[in-house]
Design a protein around this nucleic acid. Structure first.
Lengths: 264, 264
DNA sequence: CCACAAACAAGTGTCGACACAAACCCGTAT
DNA sequence: ATACGGGTTTGTGTCGACACTTGTTTGTGG
C-alpha cells in the first residue's frame, strides 16, 4: 500500500466543494480549464497520480477531448497551487514533496493559524463561532467510532471554517493553498496511533477558548494542533521518497503511476 | 501627482534583479512569457499602468510582437502574483487594491516577518547576518541625505535578504508575492514625514537584535517595522480609490491610463 | 431630446498546425 | 556486455484562425 490513500470520491459533498473552491478561485466553475484543473487536482490529492508522474499536455488533452491550450492553463493553475511542477521545456510532473519542505510549510501554517485564531477571538461573532460546532460534533462521533475517514473531512471543514470566519481573505487564500498540498500528509498524520483522540481534545479545548475569547490560549492551542500534526508525520517515518527504488540519488523519475492499489 | 511614483528605471541593478527573481520563479528568464510578465509587471509597479487600466491581450501581443498565447500566460502569471485581475470572459485589468485588503496583507506580513525574524535568530549564521549590513549602510547614508529613492531599494533589499537567509523557502515565496503588490504602498509609506528616520533606527536595532540572538526583541521589532509601515499608509490618507471620479459606486472603470505625469 | 433595440466592433476562449527541444531507441565500437 | 552517438519519436512553446461573448455605436421610436 502507498501509505494512506485518501478516499475522495466516497464523501463528495464536503471534499468536492472545498477542492472546487480552492482550485477555481479565479476561473468560473463551468469553465473547461476549471474542470480539468479540478479533476487532475483531485487525482493528485487522492494519490491516484503519484508524485513525479508525467502530466504531458497532449495525453491530457486527448483524455479530456480538448485542445492543449486549456490543459496547459489548468496545469499552470495547479502549479500555482504547488501540486504540479512545470520545468521549462520539460514535461509537467506531479510535484514531489520533501520532508524539508513539509517542515517549512508546517512552520508557516502554524504561524498563520495563530493569526487566524487571534483574529477569530478578536473579531468573529458568537454566531460565526457557532458555525464551527457542527464540524466538531461530526469529529466527535467519528473519533468515538475510531473512523479515520469520517473524522478527516469534518476536520478539514473545521479549519476551513476557521479561515473563513477570521475575516482575513489574504491569510485564507494562503492557507487554502497550503492545505491543498498537505491533505495527503494530514491524512497520514491522523492515521498515527492515538492521533485522532489527541486532535479531538485539542479542538474541543480550542472551541472553548474561542467562546471565552481567550486569545493567548486559542493561539497556543491552534499552533499546537498544527505542530502536533507535523510531529505525527515525523513519527510516521514519512520521507517523501518513493517507497521502493532507493537507488542512491533522489531525483530519479520514479515509477510513473502507482500500480494498482485501489480501494481503502 | 499620482501620490508617489516609484523610480524603477533609475536604479536597475537591484530593483530589476529582485523583480525578475520574483516574477520569473517558474519560467526561465529568457522566455517570452517571462519577458512580457516582467515588463508589464514593472509598468504596474512603477505606476505607469494605473489600477483598473485595461490589459487586453491583443494590444499587448501587438506591442510585444508576439501571438496572444504567451501574453495570456504572462497575464495569468501576474494574476497569480496579485498584480492583475482576469475576470472570466472579460478584459484583464491592473488589480486595484482596497484599504481593507492592504490591512489584511500587512497583518499577514507582520506575522510572517515575525517568523522570519525568529528563524534568523535561530538558524542564520553570523556571516549570513553580515550580508544584511551593506544594505543597512546604504539605508543609513540615504537617510542622512534625506533621499527617499536612495533609501527605498536598499530597504527592499534588506528585507529580501532577511527572507533569503531565514532558510524557509515557503515563507520567502509568500512574502515575495506580497512584497510585489505592496511596493508602491511602501514607497508612499516611507514618504510620510519622519518615516525615514523612524524606519532607519528600527532596522539598526533589529540588526543588533539579530547579532545578539535576541528572539523576542527581533520578533517584536520586525513586526513593529511592518505595522508602523501600515500606520504610515493610514496616516497618509491613502484609500485606493482613484483620486477624482468619486461617482457613487466603486466599480467604475476609472481612467484607463494616467494622463502624463512622468518623472519624479 | 432621451430611451431602447439592433447592428457592429472588439476581445476572449479554444483549436489545430508547425518549428524546435528533449526523450527514447537502436546500432556501433570498444 | 556495456558505453557512446546518430536518428527517430514524442512533447513543448508559439502561432494564426475561428466561434462566441461583451461592449459600443448607430438607428429608431417615444
Amino acid at each position: 500500500m502507498t501509505g494512506s490513500t485518501i478516499t475522495l470520491d466516497e464523501k463528495p459533498m464536503s471534499s468536492h466543494a472545498i477542492l472546487a473552491r480552492v482550485l477555481n478561485r479565479s476561473h468560473q466553475h463551468d469553465s473547461l480549464v476549471g474542470t480539468i484543473a479540478e479533476q487532475v487536482g483531485r487525482d493528485i490529492i487522492a494519490g491516484r497520480l503519484a508524485p513525479g508522474a508525467d502530466l504531458n499536455s497532449v495525453e491530457l488533452s486527448h483524455q479530456f477531448d480538448t485542445s492543449r491550450t486549456p490543459v496547459r492553463e489548468a496545469l499552470m493553475l495547479l502549479e500555482k497551487e504547488g501540486l504540479v511542477e512545470i520545468p521549462p521545456r520539460r514535461r509537467p510532473r506531479v510535484a514531489r514533496l520533501s520532508i524539508g519542505e513539509v517542515r517549512e510549510i508546517y512552520q508557516v501554517r502554524a504561524h498563520l493559524y495563530g493569526l487566524v485564531a487571534e483574529l477569530i477571538v478578536a473579531n468573529a461573532s458568537d454566531e460565526a463561532i457557532n458555525s464551527l460546532r457542527p464540524h466538531l460534533q461530526a469529529m466527535q462521533t467519528a473519533a468515538r467510532a475510531g473512523d479515520l475517514d469520517a473524522y478527516f473531512w469534518p476536520n478539514v471543514a473545521f479549519q476551513d471554517t476557521e479561515t473563513a470566519i477570521c475575516g482575513n481573505a489574504v491569510v485564507r487564500r494562503i492557507l487554502d493553498s497550503l492545505m491543498l498540498r498537505m491533505l495527503q500528509l494530514r491524512h497520514l498524520s491522523l492515521s498515527q496511533p492515538g492521533r485522532l483522540q489527541e486532535s479531538l481534545v485539542d479542538h474541543e479545548r480550542l472551541l472553548r477558548a474561542y467562546y471565552e475569547r481567550d486569545v493567548a490560549l486559542a493561539i497556543a492551542l491552534k499552533r499546537g494542533i498544527v505542530l502536533r500534526g507535523l510531529a505525527a508525520i515525523e513519527r510516521s517515518g514519512w520521507t517523501g521518497a518513493t517507497p521502493r527504488s532507493e537507488s542512491g540519488s533522489q531525483d530519479d523519475p520514479a515509477t510513473a503511476e502507482w500500480p494498482g492499489d485501489e480501494g481503502t
